[in-house]
């Protein structure tokens, strides 16, 4: 079981993915104590949700940075690149 136990919400997609993979492997190997396996399952489910959320939030938002005369960014404006 993951000793680090980073809160799932703080994990990057990649971290969540890697840990979910480990959790599934461990459970499938069946060498986890029952208590731990339940905890592991719960964590795995949370990780999967995190991954799915991340995948669902596949929003596209394209903006171009606006610059002032000296080249410093001042804000964004929608970019229509066609």
């Amino acid at each position: 079981m993951s000793e680090t136990q980073t809160p799932v919400e703080e994990m990057s997609f990649e971290q969540a993915m890697a840990e979910l993979e480990r959790a599934v492997d461990q459970l499938e190997r069946g060498d986890v104590a029952l208590d731990d396996s339940i905890a592991l399952y719960e964590r795995g489910a949370a990780l999967k949700k995190r991954c799915e959320d991340e995948l669902k939030r596949a929003e596209e938002k394209v903006a171009a940075i606006t610059l002032d005369a000296s080249g410093t960014p001042t804000g964004t404006q929608p970019l229509d690149a066609g």
Binding site: L20, A23, V24, L27, E28, S37, G44, K48
Partner: peptide
């Protein structure tokens, strides 16, 4: 990735149930 995630979810549930 969605497919992978689905697959992992299914394996997770199956493995836990099997345990």
């Amino acid at each position: 990735l969605l497919a992978w995630s689905e697959n992992q979810g299914a394996r997770l549930a199956r493995a836990a149930g099997q345990a």
